[in-house]
């Protein structure tokens, strides 16, 4: 019994130690954001000697005369519209694939699965050329409009997996009562799919928030910048001279992700599993 307990304690000790090593860089960045610039390069300690919030005040002023507040609004705007677009378009496609009957369904579903594995680079250049021809560069349209067309196949797949689990018997009763295909979608499929839709919303948020590549390609005017782009510009503009402010804004940029993670952890974990389990 004693040996067993000692082994348990050792397990805990190792898990905690290794966990601390893992998140040490993040904790260090958090503490550096409250340090004075000179101190950042002098100590690996997690406790600032003279804690200051100057980094946040200086950093919040932003770059090129645009404050970080604006960058946060831009990022939130993109994330929220993307969430709405993905929920609407992906749930419609998933409803068709999981519950409706039509010709070529299996072929189309197979095509959808293949698009999941395509590197987006093969569509990137023509998309960019078309979007720049119609004057959409430096607007959010190239980043948002495709999402209204269920282009994020992963979410279609995830919702198909979930909706397949909704029993057909349950849908038969309203059908006998005369409810149409559309009403069943609105009044039964959507409410029953809320857990999966929350997962879609969370992942959309995280991916949009962390996105850098497509935002960089389509946005070049600082007032349209997102948090990701602003951080990159901040590095370029200040060089390596104001690490404190840079870390302060970096930390702030992670806060929404952390918040989502803490509040919706369950959905996130279930979503990852749902997306991976073979249907």
């Amino acid at each position: 019994m004693k040996i067993k307990q000692r082994r348990k304690l050792l397990t805990h000790f190792l898990i905690i130690l290794f966990g601390l090593i893992m998140i040490y860089p993040l904790l260090w960045m958090l503490s550096a954001s409250f340090k004075e610039d000179v101190e950042i390069f002098q100590s690996a300690s997690l406790l600032p000697k003279n804690p200051t919030i100057n980094n946040y005040i200086y950093g919040w002023k932003g770059v090129s005369g645009v404050s970080f507040g604006k960058f946060f609004i831009n990022s939130f705007f993109l994330a929220i519209v993307s969430i709405i677009a993905n929920i609407l378009s992906c749930s419609m496609a998933a409803y068709a694939f999981s519950k409706l009957e039509f010709r070529f369904k299996n072929t189309l579903f197979a095509i959808m699965l293949v698009t999941l594995m395509l590197p987006f680079h093969v569509k990137l250049i023509p998309q960019y050329i078309v979007f720049s021809r119609i004057g959409w560069v430096n607007t959010y349209l190239p980043l948002l409009v495709p999402k209204f067309f269920a282009t994020e196949g992963f979410f279609v797949f995830l919702l198909v997996q979930f909706m397949r689990g909704i029993s057909n018997e349950l849908l038969e009763a309203p059908r006998i009562d005369g409810a149409g295909t559309f009403r069943i979608y609105m009044q039964f499929i959507m409410p029953l799919s809320v857990p999966a839709l929350v997962t879609v919303a969370i992942f959309t948020f995280i991916w949009t928030w962390n996105d850098f590549f497509s935002q960089m390609i389509y946005l070049s005017a600082p007032p349209t910048f997102t948090v990701s782009l602003a951080l990159r510009m901040f590095v370029d503009a200040t060089g390596e001279s104001s690490w404190g402010a840079l870390f302060a804004m970096s930390c702030l940029s992670l806060v929404p992700l952390l918040f989502i993670f803490i509040v919706f952890q369950r959905y996130l974990v279930e979503g990852i599993m749902l997306g991976s389990i073979k249907g």
Binding site: L88, S89, M92, A93, Y95, A96, F97, L100, E101, F102, K105, L108, I111, M112, T115, L118, K123, Q127, P146, F148, F149, A150, T151, V156, T181, F182, Y185
Partner: peptide
């Protein structure tokens, strides 16, 4: 046709953006 109606956004997206 209802299946295709619900699939329209995806179908259009597949053609236009992929």
């Amino acid at each position: 046709w209802e299946g295709y109606a619900f699939l329209t956004p995806w179908l259009l997206g597949f053609l236009l953006f992929t």
